[in-house]
């Protein structure tokens, strides 16, 4: 890994320059570009598909895995399968993400298929950032698929962020929760220009006392279009809360379809959804601090997507 473009992309999606501490796997332009396993976290190449298996030993604590992907060539279509096996009682941070710098005229696409198997009482914090840039006319496309299987008492926190630069994205997320398992998803999205983004999240609360919280916040600017379809299905005594909140600007379009369904009389599931412009009083309030209207708008969006 070298060069300013590589480092800037890595900084944006994974928060580091060069090589991270702990276990990591770097992928550039469809090929492996560096890897490190640790005593407790083993990364191996898949034999059937492109991609890697990540095994986290039981009771591993306070370790991290970084698996960023960067694409700097135009016309690349990269599809990768990554499977994470998290041992019982382990507690780890996983930082994924994809940065595309497309300076050419052809489409560049990365489709990451991530599967997580969380052992009993394990805790995973998963952070995924998507970002696109480049002066070329070629489209930047990211289609992530995430499947999470949570065993009893496990806790999965997922932060999925896509701020600008990605022309088209379809995100599919499916989570199955066993007894006492807990899921917290926060999704942040900003689209502009003619970008389109769709996010489907299906959460199945199968075990007793499982719980899920899905919070989605988005801003659509210019001519961009967004669709959110989070779905919580309660198959046992469980609790779930789905919240979709969007700021709509310019000529953008947003569809928000939170769905809740209960197949058990002890399931408690709530959804909230709102789409609206930036409130005029908010803009005026910040202008009374001496900001211009444009500055006030930026501050409101930044806070909202924080």
């Amino acid at each position: 890994m070298n060069g300013k473009i590589d480092n800037d992309l890595l900084e944006t999606i994974a928060g580091f320059h060069g090589v991270p501490a702990g276990a990591y796997n770097l992928r550039k332009n469809g090929e492996g570009a560096g890897r490190q396993s640790t005593e407790n976290i083993e990364i191996t190449t898949k034999t059937d598909n492109p991609g890697i298996d990540i095994h986290v030993a039981p009771f591993t604590k306070n370790e991290s895995v970084h698996i960023p992907v960067i694409i700097t060539e135009t016309g690349i279509n990269d599809m990768v399968y990554n499977d994470f096996y998290i041992g019982e009682g382990a507690d780890v941070l996983i930082v994924a993400g994809c940065g595309i710098h497309n300076s050419g005229g052809s489409k560049t696409e990365h489709d990451g298929i991530h599967r997580f198997f969380l052992g009993k009482n394990s805790h995973v914090k998963y952070v995924e950032k998507h970002y696109g840039e480049g002066e070329g006319t070629g489209e930047r496309v990211l289609n992530p698929t995430t499947v999470v299987e949570q065993e009893e008492g496990s806790f999965c926190e997922m932060e999925m962020v896509q701020i600008k630069g990605v022309d088209s994205t379809v995100r599919e997320t499916t989570v199955n929760l066993a007894a006492g398992a807990k899921l917290a998803v926060t999704e942040r999205l900003l689209t502009h220009g003619k970008q389109t983004a769709r996010s489907n999240i299906d959460v199945y609360l199968n075990g007793e006392d499982s719980s899920a919280q899905i919070i989605s916040r988005s801003v659509a600017q210019d001519e961009s279009e967004q669709v959110f379809y989070p779905r919580a299905v309660g198959n046992n005594k469980c609790r779930a809360h789905v919240q979709c909140d969007s700021i709509i600007m310019d000529n953008s379009k947003i569809r928000s379809i939170p769905e809740i369904s209960a197949n058990n009389s002890e399931a408690q599931i709530i959804h909230e959804a709102a789409i609206g412009r930036i409130n005029n009083e908010q803009l005026i309030k910040l202008q009374t601090f001496g900001m211009s209207e444009a500055e006030a708008e930026q501050v409101i969006i930044k806070g909202f997507l924080k």
Partner: peptide, 30 residues
Amino acid sequence: VTEHAKLGIGYAFQHPPRFKGMTVRSLLSL
């Protein structure tokens, strides 16, 4: 409004707006 503010005039609203995602500390800093 911005120019009034820059001249040192401030106004505490009768019905202040709420800001999703903004902490009390960041509002005071702003």
